[in-house]
């Protein structure tokens, strides 16, 4: 009995000590981590939006764009970049679920006319050396200047307007499809996004 008690006591003390240390480290790093995540979003916004002078990550609109498997609502955040009070451009995240391995998360930026200004890949797990070339400028750059209407939103192999990557067609196909869907959603809800009061953050 005595030895069992000792086992329990020692293990409890060790885990309590570990918990104490971890909570201290967590409280020290919480701020810098939140800041890093914010900076990452801001960096992406700067590359995909036309010039702006507000902080788009504090000027957002959230809209429901679908439901997940359990019936919960999926929200999409639209970041509004402004020059003075005029909206210069809108940025939003899209996720391609059909990449070669896992989701591809991207930030798409468009100007007030609906023309794509830039595309930034935020996270992906595509094959190094093949599918991961979607992060290269040669690939991302071809989205610049494209509009929803008048452009065939498919890769060239499927008869569309976008170059695929040698040896990797699945990743570019997924990216093109996701951006296309995002643009369609934007055009359907254009009024809401441009005019509604700022929400969140």
């Amino acid at each position: 009995m005595n030895s069992t008690l000792r086992l329990v006591l020692v293990l409890t003390l060790i885990t309590a000590g570990a918990g104490l240390i971890l909570s201290m480290v967590e409280s020290v790093t919480r701020e810098p981590i939140a800041e890093q995540r914010r900076l990452e979003t801001l960096r992406a916004l700067k590359t995909v939006l036309p010039a702006f002078d507000n902080s788009p990550d504090a000027d957002t609109v959230q809209l429901v764009y679908g439901q997940d498997k359990r019936g919960r609502e999926l929200q999409r955040t639209f970041f509004r970049g402004r020059q003075g009070s005029e909206i210069a451009g809108i940025a939003f995240q899209v996720i391609a679920p059909d990449g070669y391995s896992g989701n591809i998360t991207m930030m798409v930026g468009i100007d007030s006319e609906g023309t794509v200004v830039g595309l930034e890949i935020l996270s992906h797990a595509e094959t190094p050396g093949l599918g991961d070339k979607i992060t290269r400028e040669e690939f991302k750059g071809q989205f610049k200047g494209k509009t929803l209407q008048g452009v065939d939103w498919r890769v060239k192999k499927d008869g569309g307007a976008f170059d695929q990557i040698t040896g990797a067609t699945i990743s570019p196909r997924a990216v093109v499809k996701a951006v296309h869907k995002g643009l369609q959603f934007y055009h359907e809800h254009r009024q809401d996004i441009l005019t509604s009061e700022r929400v969140g953050q």
């Binding site: 240390i21 971890l22 480290v25 967590e26 790093t29 810098p32 981590i33 890093q36 900076l39 990452e40």
Partner: peptide, 11 residues
């Protein structure tokens, strides 16, 4: 500890 510090300072 390593993971938290890395995320905070070497993102």
């Amino acid at each position: 500890v390593v993971q938290l510090c890395m995320e905070a300072y070497f993102y």
